[in-house]
Write a protein that binds this DNA or RNA. Structure first.
Lengths: 365, 365
DNA sequence: TGTTAGCACTCTTATTCCTTGATTGCCAAA
DNA sequence: TTTGGCAATCAAGGAATAAGAGTGCTAACA
């Protein structure tokens, strides 16, 4: 009974019901459906249909006389049917594009920047987690001595700069830093961050012979880079932005219910698990699909930010199950680098092409 | 009548009343005072006293029969009397000290770091604004060419590094960057960030002659540094952390009232004015003293973060008027660099000295 | 003159009861 | 299969009531 195929009419009713609830946040009644998409049917008929959908687990009643509300299964059905043909929301896309001008060239700042942009564009709290940074390829390494006795290591990768400080020794001559930088660049060029330390170690003796005066520098470098990688892979690399936007949703007008969720958001460790899962495209975790108890009532939308085909960061948008799936899918598609649309929006010259393509897509429907 | 001197008994009653209200968040009644600090007086007597304090404007009644609550004037009295002898809260101090290990050497990240630390330690939303960065003195300048065609300018100051990227030209030889860096350092050493651009301009021709091959580099440098200073002085340099902690206070259990304030916090431009004011030590703006309408019901505590005697950043802690003034004053004193305690906590060897000093202070009372 | 006991008064808060209105479920007829 | 009709259900809101906490005032007391 549960899994029997829905009739086209039931399908339409269910999709409209969920859509209406997402927009209005008030329970779906037979007459709402009638006005929205079934003017030629009576409310009694629709009541029968709603009753059937309830029996199948797509809807549920909060009170005997209070209309119905989608279940997680109902949302899931809606999302799956929508994802087959995501209606890209032009407004959201151009808003993101306007905001997304990567002012920073530091990889670590990127996490904040993406989170801010997505949160602003979607109006939902957004969590971004740096991951897969080990897959970045190294282009150039510079060690820059500072006057404080420290030095800065800058690693230029194919997506931004990673930097860390290291303790040094005032007696080290400038030339040693330059030698070491050049040797490191030669050795590590085009290898991944993951292999970085291994490669330094295996070439350490060879490199040390070539460094003028202070050959112990590579030990310090290894120490600093180890701590850098620790820092990047642990905790510090996850940020939430726009947490307060959760309060815009009527389901969280009660501060107590909001607080539980905000608690999790302010310490996003628990979401890591959800964001860590690999998923090529935009995906949704709805209600019970989320393995965190405090977030059962929510939906987490997720996508990966890609550079050269590798996932560099995971982006999660968090909201009530009754969230604006279309808008969010649009936003995530953008950042996940959906080829055509990203490029089209990036180069204004191609804007017209893009419109043509969009029209083609429409006609294809 | 209003400004007449308070009797010692009235003073005690008022201070205890405010303190109790800060802790309990429920209106002060005659019997509460009796239990707290006047076991030998009857409630009727205390009612007379409370009545008098109300007439003087220190307290007010919300309802005829609901106990009394401090007015802004009442809080002001409490704070002024407390600030004369700030009871440093050891727990808060050691917590801040544990958190405050300035991992970053970038000036701009410092703003975030301080805000996080203070907010965590005090449990109130904290806003930090970078200011007076122009007074930092320059120690060293490095231009670092990147493979992307950009270059990074690093300015080492007496308090951290400021950096910005600049567009360059792939044809520029390495040596030009080194020459330019050295010349800039020679020219700008020990001058302030404020004078930086002026000094570059006045030495530009002279420096240009000394740079191998590509002498136009200083025009690019000037352009980049101008935009850097713009960035630092405009908007971007103010951050709020721990906004959600506002919800911990019962006065904001109603989400509507909380929202107004959170709105301001999420876009802290309006607080700039408050934070901009110079104030040597820890200061408080209570209620109507705040020139922002949405924040009338609140208190903003403020202090400056000092480096070499100059105010580099302003720190504001925001909470209801009924906030924990002692804890907050402690925290701000720490960051504002109250000599003894800062150093004492920094060097564990001196911990014993500090205890002795604390005892001396006690005996002085 | 300052302090206290006593008592009436005020006002909030919680509880209860009632009404209203929206919505459903079901049944019988089309 | 659809529909009209009708009773049943329940949330939301309002009015009335009761309970409780605290004050103000007055008169007596030290």
């Amino acid at each position: 009974m549960e899994d029997m195929q829905l009739s086209e009419r039931k399908r339409q009713i269910l999709l409209n019901a969920v859509e209406d609830y997402i927009q209005q946040a008030s329970p779906i009644t037979s007459s709402v459906i009638q006005h929205k998409c079934a003017k030629n049917l009576s409310t009694a008929t629709l009541r029968n249909e709603l009753n059937a959908l309830e029996a199948m687990g797509y809807l549920k009643q909060l009170h005997t006389s209070g209309g119905r509300v989608p279940t997680s299964k109902g949302y899931r059905f809606y999302v799956d049917s929508m994802m087959a043909d995501i209606p890209l929301d032009k407004n959201v896309l151009s808003e993101i594009h306007a905001l997304f001008n990567r002012r920073t060239i530091y990889l670590e700042d990127m996490v904040n920047e993406i989170a801010s942009v997505i949160s602003k564009a979607t109006n939902y709290p957004t969590v971004v987690m740096l991951k897969g940074f080990e897959k970045l390829t190294i282009r150039n390494i510079k060690i820059i001595p500072l006057l404080t006795g420290q030095a800065l290591i800058l690693i230029e990768t194919n997506s931004g700069i990673i930097s860390n400080s290291m303790e040094t020794d005032a007696s080290i001559p400038q030339q040693s830093y330059i030698d070491a930088s050049n040797l490191l660049t030669q050795t590590l060029k085009d290898c991944t961050v993951a292999d970085m330390i291994k490669n330094i170690k295996s070439h350490k003796d060879e490199m040390s012979r070539k460094v003028e005066e202070f050959s112990g520098i590579f030990d310090i470098v290894i120490k600093s880079l180890t701590s850098l990688i620790d820092k990047l892979s642990q905790g510090d690399n996850i940020t939430a932005k726009g947490e307060l936007k959760l309060l815009n949703n009527p389901e969280y007008s009660d501060p107590e219910s909001a607080k539980k969720v905000l608690e999790v958001l302010s310490n996003p460790e628990e979401i890591k698990e959800v964001l860590s899962e690999d998923s090529a495209d935009v995906s949704f975790k709805i209600g019970a699909e989320i393995p965190v108890e405090e977030l059962q009532g929510l939906t987490i939308a997720k996508a990966d930010y890609q550079v050269d085909g590798e996932s560099i960061a995971s982006i999660g948008i968090i909201g009530p199950q009754r969230m604006d799936y279309a808008k969010i899918a649009s936003a995530l598609k953008f950042v996940a680098g959906e080829g055509i649309n990203l490029k089209a929006l990036t180069h204004k010259k191609e804007a017209k092409n893009e419109q043509k393509q969009a029209q083609k897509q429409k006609t294809r429907k």
